[in-house]
């Protein structure tokens, strides 16, 4: 479909240690969806996605895509790379003539994967949110600041976190993550 595309933190070497993994998950499909959750189209869109639009703040639902709560009338649908057209069409068909905005924002953020038993500790170095699994366990997401960069944090099963960050901040955030991770990585100079 497209030639070689450099991802934003292109020169970043993924880190994998027993307790910590940091990698980039590039070019995920992201579609922003805005509508009143009371609109009948909300139900149709939920059925088309295979999961109802989450209305509880800071949660997400999963089918073949993840549906993340961004605001009381705003969601982000995240899917595998290259599914922009398919997702947009699916959403627009389900929306019908409803008062709905569907916008492909795949280029707005890149995604970092921070995983492993030390992932929470690492993120907590730069994030004011309570990341304890009791509060921020699988199924939770939050827009917040990580090391002064605006991010969308997604908690997944097995101590896995997705950190969605603007491309222009990605290089900085990766550098910060690697620096903050030094103490958790064996064989790396602290």
């Amino acid at each position: 479909m497209m030639g070689e595309r450099p991802s934003p933190p292109a020169r970043f070497e993924p880190v994998a240690d027993g307790d910590l993994r940091i990698a980039e998950v590039s070019f995920l499909t992201q579609v922003n969806l805005r509508l009143d959750p009371g609109d009948p189209a909300a139900g149709d869109i939920g059925r088309a996605l295979g999961v109802p639009l989450p209305t509880e703040p800071g949660t997400y639902g999963s089918a073949d895509v993840d549906v993340l709560w961004l605001g009381p009338d705003e969601w982000l649908i995240v899917g595998e790379p290259g599914r922009e057209r398919d997702l947009e069409t699916r959403l627009r068909t389900a929306a019908g003539t409803g008062h709905v905005a569907v916008t492909d924002v795949s280029a707005q953020r890149t995604t970092l994967l921070v995983a492993g038993p030390k992932a929470r500790d690492l993120l907590a170095h730069g994030c004011a949110l309570d990341l304890h699994p009791r509060v921020f366990g699988p199924g939770r997401c939050a827009q917040t600041m990580l090391a002064r960069a605006q991010v969308l944090l997604v908690a997944r099963d097995g101590d896995e976190f997705l950190v969605l960050v603007r491309p222009s901040f990605a290089g900085y955030l990766v550098a910060w993550l690697l620096d903050a991770a030094a103490e958790h990585l064996s064989g790396q100079p602290g």
């Binding site: 961004l70 605001g71 009381p72 705003e74 939050a142 827009q143 917040t144 600041m145 605006q150």
Partner: peptide
């Protein structure tokens, strides 16, 4: 107040 870095409401 506006929650600029969060839900933007």
């Amino acid at each position: 107040w506006s929650h600029a870095a969060g839900c933007r409401r």
